[in-house]
Write a protein that binds this DNA or RNA. Structure first.
Lengths: 159, 159
DNA sequence: GGTTGACTTAGAGCTGACTCTAGATTCTAT
DNA sequence: ATAGAATCTAGAGTCAGCTCTAAGTCAACC
């Protein structure tokens, strides 16, 4: 079974332009061509494409993905290097997810901030008396509610 | 207490160039200037800067962050819009984290793939007999191990 | 009083990742 | 057999998000 660039693009939900660009950047050295020079993707190529899509999603730059594919094409001597590459990006991705969790926590505290302001009809309930500056104690209040067992998600919900 | 652009840049670990760029894009309308026209950041400005950094980390484009700051400057009539904005990006961030979790799962399965190949000294243990194509059953084998209670993280570890 | 260093602006330059155009070729369906 | 759709390449264009340069201002120190 073989597939045209259009079929592969549809399956992966990316444009044929992008696939040609990836090819130009050396990400698709495994793709065959027919007599007319058109790309013919094999079933096994989807194993590579899956990896490419995964690394993209993980935020790995195209050039580095190219290096990984190079390793794949070189053979069994690069097995350790390929493992190390994946382990490295696993660590980076875990670090990123931890940062995103903090970001999410922050968004939830700010939602609570606006929810309470909305209930009061004005943001000024959070200001230091007589100023336009946010009282630093407001964040502490939120943190205390969470420490007392409230869910940040629930605290931010309206209704 | 007030801070120069350089001090703020150092505190946030971003370059003064970037801060000026954000200002140009309308993200810092709240920053005062001294008589000489130099930016003077106030303590309260860090509340805005925190939000900007958070939204950046969440992947919100600079222009959209500018719209949010506009809402903030407009006053209490925009409280609901600000809440909705944050709630929207909370949802988007949760969706992104779910995708990243799948990406992480994939990286772990591939680590296991290379770990087992390394143990055998050759990737060909994963190929269909007599071919250079990966046996689709290999992934199923990994999934079975996970279904039987193995941890994907442990399965990918070497030693 | 002169040098150094941090700051100012406008605007140019850079990078990554596409995205598209032009012009030619090939495949598919009637 | 021919129209229309899909593909090919080379190379140009686009966009976001910085990043830097140039030319000038200003404050601090020796």
């Amino acid at each position: 079974m073989s597939y045209s660039i259009g079929q592969v693009a549809a399956k992966l939900a990316i444009s044929p332009y992008t696939l040609r660009y990836y090819d130009k950047e050396g990400l698709l050295p495994f793709v065959d061509r027919n007599e007319a020079g058109r790309r013919r993707f094999k079933d096994n190529d989807f194993n590579f494409l899956e990896v490419i899509v995964c690394l993209k999603e993980a935020g790995v730059p195209v050039k580095q993905i190219g290096s990984f594919i190079d390793l794949c094409m070189t053979g069994d001597t690069t097995l350790q290097a390929r493992y190390d590459f994946l382990a490295d990006h696993e660590q980076k991705l875990m670090a990123k997810m931890a940062r995103l969790q903090h970001t999410l926590d922050f968004l939830r505290w700010k939602k609570w901030y606006y929810k309470t302001a909305l209930r009061a009809g004005t943001e000024s309930i959070h200001y230091l008396p007589g100023t336009n500056q946010v009282d630093p104690a407001v964040h502490a209040t939120f943190e205390q509610l969470v420490a007392d067992g409230a869910s940040p998600v629930e605290l931010g919900k309206i209704e």
